[in-house]
Structure formats: C-alpha cells, structure tokens
Amino acid sequence: MKDKNLDHSINIENIATLARIHLTNKEKVELPKSLDEILEYFDKLGKANVEGIEPSAHAFPLYDILREDEVDVPLDTKTALQNAPKQRNDQIIVPKIVE
C-alpha cells in the first residue's frame, strides 16, 4: 500500500496505540507533519557532548521523602465517587471485562 505517512519517521498508528488515543482520519494526516518537524528540531540534541554526564530528572532531586505517619480524615466514598462518569451502590460502573 502506498501511504505517504510511511515516509515519515513517526509511525502514527503505532504511537497512537501506545498512547491509547483514537485519532480521526484528519488527525492521522495532520499530526505526523507537525510531529516530524518537531522531531527534526530535536536532532540538535545530537550535537551536545554528553559523555560522562549524568541525566537530571529534577533540578533539585530529593530522596526518601517521608512524612509523619498520622491518621487523617479520608474522603468519604460519596465524595470520592462524585466525579465518576457512571456509578451504582458506591462502585464505578465499567463495561464487562471478562466473558
């Protein structure tokens, strides 16, 4: 199949599956264009000399952050479920996942 999207560096269908996002046909055509331009811009990272450099996940990493183990009042079930799209008997309703 001749698909012009195959020429791009990004496999849009595969990434959309990994991201669990349904894309419209229009998005499948338009997204790769902007993504490829952005990815091309990222190429400049290849120029930086990072030999022996440790990666930074945070500007000021903190480790072993603990707080006092104190009993606090939790949200009651009703409040915790108030934003659920569907609920019944204090439980969230989802489609059947086992046959």
């Binding site: 990004i10 959309a16 996002i21 349904h22 997204l31 993504l35 952005i38 990815l39």
Partner: peptide, 18 residues
C-alpha cells in the same frame, strides 16, 4: 481520550509517547 483531548494535547502526548 480521542474525543476528550484537543489537538495540541494529543500532539504532546504522541510526542511524549514517541
């Protein structure tokens, strides 16, 4: 996610996933 997110959010999620 397809219906709930706008196009820029989708673009960044796709970029991040990539």
């Amino acid at each position: 996610r397809g219906e709930g997110f706008g196009s820029e959010v989708k673009r960044r999620i796709m970029l991040g996933t990539y």
